[in-house]
């Protein structure tokens, strides 16, 4: 069974960067301070270097070059610094991502697009940004970094199943390979000891309707943001658009077509400004 081989390769995935993990725990406390974030991050050289790069990028549009992590924290503010830490931490896993017929950094570009879209949707629907959701969205397709080569090997069979039986690419992955990329991502998240809400959002990012926890709106936002990026072709791979459309998402968030299209336009603008973040991979 191929899936045994896949499960073994999960074990070789490095631990989630401790600094990024600590920041995730920090932001759960509503009273966390921005200096706490700086204190955690400054001991991780790779993340610090990446944060400085992001801070000095056009995305944040700062006039003066930032050289220390404390400056970065002061200038960027709470939300942006958390985003930058998480992007720097997560990007390392996408560096060698192959498969789904994609070039190296395309899966990362897709992940950044989905993460930005979750924040745009969250602002429109709940009037707030959500740093944890941002991280979850960056990781929603993490299963693909392992699935990639197996999907490429079995692509003719998977595609045949999708086109003959009209099933989703996700279901076809499971039938042919023995596991789908969302479940696999969930296993990676569990291995990293992520909180259940995050792990669930990764597992159910194509099928939030199957999730038992009905209060996990994050999973639905990741789903909707993912569909938007898939439709716009952002980091779109050989799986194409062969995923299930769930109309209940419209009712759940009381969104109109116009809202959705406007959010898409905003996301493409944000993505354009996030070229340095995408360039990290």
């Amino acid at each position: 069974m191929i899936s045994d081989k896949i499960l073994k390769s999960i074990k070789n995935i490095p631990a989630f960067p401790a600094a990024a993990m600590k920041v995730m725990a920090l932001i759960d406390d509503p009273n966390y301070s921005i200096t706490d974030v700086a204190d955690v991050v400054k001991y991780d050289q790779a993340i610090t270097a990446n944060i400085l790069r992001i801070c000095n990028s056009a995305y944040f549009g700062l006039r003066h070059k930032i050289v220390t992590i404390n400056d970065a924290v002061m200038r960027l503010g709470q939300q942006n610094i958390v985003r930058a830490v998480q992007a720097a931490g997560v990007s390392t896993f996408y560096r060698k991502a192959k498969g789904y017929g994609l070039e190296a950094n395309k899966l990362w570009e897709h992940s950044v697009g989905v993460a930005l879209m979750t924040q745009i949707l969250s602002k429109r629907i709940f009037k707030r940004e959500d740093a944890r959701l941002y991280t979850t969205a960056l990781l929603h397709d993490i299963g693909k970094i392992i699935m990639g080569e197996f999907v490429d090997e079995s692509f003719p069979q998977i595609h045949d199943l999708v086109s003959r039986e009209g099933i989703s690419f996700l279901d076809a992955e499971e039938k042919i390979i023995g596991i789908n990329h969302a479940d696999l991502g969930g296993r990676i998240a569990s291995q990293w000891n992520f909180p259940k809400a995050m792990t669930d959002a990764i597992i159910y990012h194509h099928r939030p309707d199957l999730m038992q926890d009905e209060d996990n709106s994050g999973a639905w936002l990741v789903y909707l943001a993912d569909q938007a990026c898939i439709m716009m072709g952002i980091g779109l791979g050989s799986d194409g658009l062969a995923y299930k459309g769930l109309s209940e998402v419209i009712i759940k968030f009381k969104l109109r077509q116009k809202d959705f299209e406007e959010c898409i336009m905003l996301m493409l603008e944000d993505l354009d400004r996030a070229r340095e973040v995408i360039g990290m991979v």
Binding site: G166, S247, I250, L255
Partner: peptide
């Protein structure tokens, strides 16, 4: 002009 599966009106 491709679409996702069971395309709901919204999408």
């Amino acid at each position: 002009g491709a679409s996702i599966l069971d395309d709901a009106n919204f999408f």
